[in-house]
Design a protein around this nucleic acid. Structure first.
Length: 556
RNA sequence: UGCCGGAUGGUGUAAUGGUAGCACGACUGACUCUGAAUCAGUUAGUCUAGGUUCGAGUCCUAGUCCGGCAGCCA
């Protein structure tokens, strides 16, 4: 069978081959998050791989919560994860919980004991660690390794009945304490934890470990290709051991791919949670976070995340992707879809002295020059407007095409204006510009009398609406360093808040709507902070700019 | 001095023994009522040393470097 997308990574080749040879009738994958945090863009890669491959080969994908550790899991995460997966555009075939299989897992563990393949160990966690050996030294058999089957059965049952305290005993696989693969040195299968579970309540006080539970979950659900990240590679022999020794009728296979790492950010649930818990960010959905909820609030579209992830491919090498590539995909998507508008983020007032005091006119503006079908809209123009502070310089550097004394520029969709006078306050700051306009130069009039180097955007003072703009830079100033406290790593400029103006055309914006503020970038209407009276816009990604001031004379 | 993986421009990725290609970035230029977009171009790569072969990024040997593994986490 051929896949639809045409992309052909090593996993798709395996799937293809399995289908062709008939080893597999229908491909079944699963996305198995632990509900102990919110999903991030790294998970998006796994989601696109698991759901994507199943889709391409007409298979099925389950959303399965790997909830085998009651201490860390919570229903808040269960709900958030479902929302995020759905937002990316995927529908799961089955919605399952590992905890629903606890009884079967217990029975399989009993089977292991009966076969002499598992035993109850009374050693402490510390003793276990000491006898496991090291990377270069083999481990030693536990004193309890030779317990009789009946004794093990009895003890394991008492574990389940709650007759021991946390950590007093564990169930271990009996494999090989001398194996060079640490995962095979009699790994722990079950531990005791008298903790309430988000799904099973207090029904259980023993919980299976990932290494035991995961292969069973896959087998129970009929998963054919269990796709996970590289760090589980060493567990593959154990995965196969569990399936085989537990005599699971269905045999899934594990394949590993490289995890996604993004530059200048934190990418582990542990550290993301820390940022949230320490109040260093505004929750899991802080727009600077690489979480899916953060990216959504920031304004990234699922389509741009998808094309980004798909471009990376599926490989067995690890690496770190420059976040600029994600920005590129966001621009690419938004450029075609986002309506254009003019917004002034750092306002500077301009009075057009030869424009009649009470005159007002409506000017046409293309909604999106990339898509004529989006039509035009009208924007109001009058004698007083705001322009961007950085679009004026009293002493312009070379190749500065914007406003400066004596220079003429075009106001986008309006007229040429020329700067005649600069008004300053007591401190010498420029507070107002007095300009004249040329009525011959109206946009759309076909005026060709003379040319102008620059076009700048503006907002009419009479109808301007105050707005808050949140400008973002990467969360971390440099690369993640686990030896430094998080608060020292955070980029102090990761969030800058500005107060400026939007035009009347944005009076009725709705949350999560995306716009391009001409010459600035793409912005999203913040869903958390925006009210009818106070509009907050999140910078999704700025427009590229080839303009650089050669001599940074910040003087205006 | 264990085991398992892996090394292709600054970054990510392709080439399945037969011309090292693509994308991002960076830099030019054209165009432009967004210094955007678009278009054209430039830049820059097979870890090292041997070997097999008419031919090696690809196969073999040795080395170097990088990642993962010593939770009763997943």
């Amino acid at each position: 069978m051929e896949n639809i997308s045409g992309s052909n990574d090593f996993i798709r080749e395996i799937v293809s081959e399995d289908l062709k040879t008939g080893h597999v009738k229908q491909v079944v994958t699963r996305f198995p998050p632990e509900p102990n945090g919110y999903l991030h863009i790294g998970h998006a890669k796994s989601i696109f791989i698991n759901f994507g491959i199943a889709q391409e080969f007409a298979g099925k994908t389950n959303l399965r919560f790997d909830d085998t550790n009651p201490l860390k899991e919570d229903n808040e995460y269960v709900n958030a994860i479902q929302e995020d997966v759905a937002w990316l555009g995927f529908h799961w075939d089955g919605l399952y919980f590992a905890s629903d299989y606890f009884e079967e897992m217990f029975q399989r563990a009993v089977l292991l004991i009966k076969k002499g393949k598992a035993y109850v160990d009374d050693q402490t966690a510390e003793e276990l660690r000491l006898t496991r050996g090291t990377l270069t030294e083999q481990g030693q058999d536990s004193l309890y390794r030779t317990r009789t089957i009946d004794e093990n059965l009895d003890l394991f049952d008492h574990m389940r009945q709650g007759e021991f305290g946390d950590g007093e005993r564990v169930l271990r696989a009996k494999i090989d304490m001398t194996s060079p693969n640490l995962n095979l040195r009699d790994p722990v299968l079950y531990r005791i934890s008298h903790a309430p579970h988000h799904n099973t309540g207090d029904k259980w006080c023993i919980y299976p470990m990932y290494a035991f539970a995961h292969p069973l979950e896959d087998a129970i659900e009929g998963v054919t290709h269990s796709l996970c990240t590289l760090e589980f590679k060493d567990q593959r022999p154990l995965y196969d051991w569990v399936i085989r020794e537990c005599e699971m009728p269905h045999v899934p296979h594990q394949y590993e791919f490289g995890r996604l790492n993004l530059s200048n950010t934190v990418m582990s649930k542990r550290n993301l949670k820390k940022l949230v818990d320490e109040g260093l960010v505004d929750g899991w959905d802080d727009p600077r976070m690489p979480t899916l909820s953060g990216l959504r609030r920031r304004g990234f579209t699922p389509e741009s995340i998808r094309s980004f992830v798909e471009e990376l491919g599926v490989t067995v090498t690890g690496g770190e992707v420059d976040y600029k590539l994600l920005e590129y995909h966001a621009r690419q998507d938004l450029n075609l879809r986002a309506p254009r508008t003019m917004a002034v983020i750092r306002p500077l007032k301009v009075v057009i002295t030869n424009y009649p005091e009470n005159q007002v006119e409506m000017l046409d503006m293309e909604v999106n020059p990339e898509d004529a079908s989006m039509g035009t809209k009208q924007v109001q123009f009058s004698r007083e407007i705001y322009i961007e502070q950085e679009d004026f310089m009293e002493v312009p550097p070379p190749k500065y095409h914007r406003l400066y004394p004596g220079n003429e520029v075009r106001l986008k969709n309006a007229y040429f204006i020329k700067c005649n006078e600069v008004v300053k306050d007591n401190q010498g700051n420029v507070v107002e510009l007095r300009c004249t306009y040329d009525s011959e130069t109206k946009s759309g009039s076909g005026f060709t009398g003379r040319k102008v180097k620059g076009t700048i955007h503006w907002v009419d003072c009479k109808t301007a609406i105050p707005a808050e703009f949140r400008l973002y830079e990467p969360l971390l100033a440099g690369e993640f360093d686990e030896n430094k406290p998080l608060e020292q790593l955070i980029n102090p400029d990761s969030l800058k808040v500005e107060y400026g103006y939007i035009g009347a055309d944005l009076k009725n914006v709705k949350i999560q709507e995306k716009y391009q503020f001409i010459r600035h970038g793409f912005f999203n209407v913040d869903p958390k902070e925006t009210t009818t009276d106070h509009k907050v816009f999140n910078l999704i990604v700025s427009l590229k700019s080839s303009f650089k001031i050669e001599q940074p004379s910040a003087k205006r």
